[in-house]
């Protein structure tokens, strides 16, 4: 995955999936349509002000609440390049990995990076650089299994390999 670079938009702790994409939009499955309502109940100016590649830096327990996969989908479709937070709610965490959306865990990055800073992230190493301040942070490493899913661009690639393997070893008379 290439280096990510963008301007930071900063939010607090416990940003839940209801404010990321409210229930009234949860029947939408088309990413470009979902992108229009991203962060609708948190920051109504979000969609207008962000540029492609921008980065969200938020407090702990990001994405808590419902299992709706449209939450990371809408953020991804809005053009946001990555989310950095001290911790992620577990379903948001797995959904992001499963759909190939980059997330990074770092508490110091949240504490020190300010809104408007220019940040560069190297996904392969988890190094987060605040280019405005000249500081650097190391995100928590992903377990090996998840690195493999991330490298395949999401869980679908993993499933396809399992199916191919099963087909190859299936008994044929």
């Amino acid at each position: 995955m290439d280096t990510l670079q963008g301007r930071v938009w900063k939010y607090g702790a416990n940003i839940n999936t209801d404010v990321i994409i409210p229930g009234r939009y949860c029947h939408i499955t088309e990413p470009t349509e979902l992108a229009k309502y991203c962060m609708a109940d948190l920051d109504s100016t979000f969609v207008e002000k962000i540029s492609r590649g921008d980065i969200i830096v938020a407090g702990g327990n990001f994405g808590c609440g419902s299992s709706r996969e449209v939450a990371p989908l809408s953020i991804k479709a809005s053009g946001i390049g990555a989310v950095v937070a001290p911790s992620f709610a577990r379903i948001f965490y797995r959904n992001s990995i499963n759909i190939g959306f980059p997330i990074f865990e770092s508490a110091p990055a949240f504490e020190e990076i300010d809104e408007g800073d220019e940040v560069e992230i190297t996904p392969s190493t988890g190094i987060i650089k605040d280019l405005t301040k000249g500081t650097e942070y190391q995100a928590a490493a992903f377990p090996e299994f998840l690195q493999a899913i991330i490298a395949r661009g999401g869980l679908r690639g993993y499933a396809e390999e399992v199916l191919a393997r099963r087909k190859a070893t299936a008994f044929t008379p």
Partner: peptide, 20 residues
């Protein structure tokens, strides 16, 4: 436990899921 839609789809396909 609750999971996302991709997890549901993959479990339909392979009958398994990953859990930490």
């Amino acid at each position: 436990t609750g999971v996302g839609s991709t997890d549901v789809a993959v479990a339909w396909a392979i009958g398994q899921t990953w859990l930490r």
